[in-house]
Nucleic acid binder design. Sequence first.
DNA 1: TATGCGTGGAG
DNA 2: TCTCCAAGCAT
Length: 407
Amino acid sequence: MALSVENNERREAPAPTGRPTRLLAWYDRNRRRLPWRALPGEAIDPYRIWLSEIMLQQTTVKAVGPYFEKFLARWPDVEAMGRASLDDILRMWAGLGYYSRARNLHACAVAVLRDHGGRFPDTEEDLRALPGIGPYTAAAIAAIAFNRRTMPVDGNIERVVTRLFAVDEPLPKAKRRIQTLAATLLGPSRVGRDGKNCAGRDMKIRAGRDSKSRAGDIAQALMDLGAAICTPKKPACVLCPLNDDCAARARGDQETFPRKVPKKAGELRRGAAFVVRRGNDVLVRTRPAKGLLGGMTEVPTSTWLAAQDDVAALKQAPCFESAPRWQRKAGTVTHVFTHFPLELAVYTATVTARTAMPDGMRWVPIARLKDEALPNLMRKVIAHGLGENKEISVAANRRKQQKDPPA
DNA sequence: TATGCGTGGAG
DNA sequence: TCTCCAAGCAT
């Protein structure tokens, strides 16, 4: 049956046909040089693309840079990473956040070795089945590493697309529509190997190889555009290669996109952290494998609860054969997680040599703390606890807290 | 579909 | 100081 491709293009895609061309031209002149990005003509290493995409999930390019270099130097390919221990990976990941990514990174490397002979699968579907690879990352790897004709949609592309088409519907409800609109930026698809025409507004873009398309470059062009030009605030529209048919710009309200439903702020939680010294050792433990800071090292802490006072928190201090004298450090350590802010009081104590560690805990020499999988929160706590800051008596603090209750 | 999950930088 | 948010995923 099949209309010709040319007819279809003229009829169904009048305005947008120039966008892919303009995007690519802009990209060829303005692309960022990034450690994981191959130069034109250079071979693309799927392992690097995968590693970078996992690290870049909800994380800035700037933060990822040094971590990517460290990981690549230590584990130059997926086989090396698959042989590494999870603990080594967690230690190397410490500070980057979202630690389930590190656990999935390891699991994914193992799966690639076990199930795919050490080569990353090259289809979106097979990539999607691997740990830590969701819809975005599967599409990104497929497009960037394997030139599959598919469009990953990240936060940058969401912003560019909602502005370009003035998508009034708020996120996350608008996701499906944004995905569809974003895919049009790949341009009309070529005729597939089966001879069928796969262009058309209402048809899914076929995720097949297309040596003539530059799907990965278009996606990266949109990301670079979102990072450099189409920024959340004060977008530099005059420099944008798509400015002449940007619907939001025509309306003058481009900064209001993407629309979002506001999410409620988390409630402040309070607790206590206990920094116990035994000579040059500090008492630590490993957090449960899953959940908040899963599998990471911490000093013992109380529960973290909204409206928990110092007295209740102090009662949860670790127990020793003979009770130590707890000293409360002046001030608190505050930390902001994605879903709640945390305020920890820090208590210190010194125990005698050869004091046994409580169940599930261990002594670590202070000089070796840097080798532990310590999240930044715990680095702050330990720095506070071991610092030269003044201590205040526990009794004095109780009086202060009663007199001066938290808002 | 909604929520849990880190951290640091920009404005 | 405060708010937003950055190449999202798992459940």
